Amino acid sequence: MNTAPRLHWTDADHTAHEALWRSEAALAPHKRVVLADDRMPADRAYKLACEGTALLWQGDFQNARHLLQALMRRLDRQPPRRGKPGQQPDTPAQAFHQHRQQQGQRAHILGMLLIPFNADHTIPLRRAPDVQQACLEAYGPGTEAYVTSLRELLGLIGAHEWRKKGVEIPALKGRIHTHYGVFSPLRGEYIDLVAQAPLPPQADLAFDIGTGSGVLAAVLAQRGVARVIGTDQSDRALACARDNLTRLKLIQQVDLQKVDLFPAGQAPLVVCNPPWVPARPTSPVEYAVYDPDSAMLRGFLAGLKAHLSPDGEGWLILSDLAEHLGLRTREQLLQWISEAGLVVAGRLDARPKHPKASDATDPLHRARAAEVTSLWRLAAA
Rank of each mutant, 00 (worst) to 15 (best):
K47W: 11
Q58Y: 01
H99M: 13
R73V: 06
A36K: 03
A54W: 00
L35T: 07
A49M: 00
D90Y: 15
R65Q: 14
L67H: 07
Q62I: 01
R39D: 07
P89A: 12
H66S: 11
A16I: 04
P41V: 09
R81Q: 06
K47E: 12
C50M: 02
T53G: 03
D90N: 15
A95W: 02
A64E: 01
Q69D: 15
Y46P: 14
G52Y: 00
H17D: 01
H99A: 08
T15Y: 14
R22V: 12
N63T: 12
D43Q: 09
L75I: 08
D60V: 00
Q78V: 03
Q62W: 06
R65A: 06
L56Q: 04
F96Y: 07
M72A: 10
P85Y: 03
A95E: 07
Q87C: 08
A70Y: 07
A26P: 03
A19T: 01
D90L: 15
L27R: 12
R44F: 03
A25L: 04
A12S: 08
M40E: 07
V34H: 06
R22M: 11
R81T: 12
Q88E: 13
D38P: 03
V34N: 05
H99Q: 09
G86Y: 12
K84I: 06
Q69Y: 15
N63L: 12
A12Y: 10
Q78H: 12
A26I: 13
K84F: 11
L75Y: 06
H14D: 14
T15M: 08
A19D: 05
R73M: 09
G83F: 00
K31A: 14
A49T: 02
H30M: 11
H97I: 07
G86L: 10
H30T: 15
T53P: 01
G83S: 11
D13S: 05
K84P: 10
L48S: 07
L56K: 00
N63M: 11
Q98T: 13
A28W: 13
A36T: 08
L55N: 05
E51T: 03
E51W: 04
A25Q: 02
D76S: 09
A25F: 07
A70H: 04
A95N: 14
R73S: 13
F61S: 04
K31P: 14
Q78C: 08
R65E: 02
K31S: 15
L20R: 04
C50Q: 11
L67P: 01
L71R: 02
A42C: 01
A64T: 00
G59D: 05
H66L: 12
D60N: 02
K31I: 14
A95C: 11
Q94F: 05
A64Y: 02
T15I: 08
L20H: 03
H97L: 11
Q69F: 13
A54P: 01
A42D: 06
A19C: 04
A45F: 00
H14T: 07
T91W: 03
L68M: 05
R39M: 09
A28K: 09
C50A: 10
R65K: 08
D37H: 05
Q69E: 15
P29C: 05
T53W: 00
A45L: 02
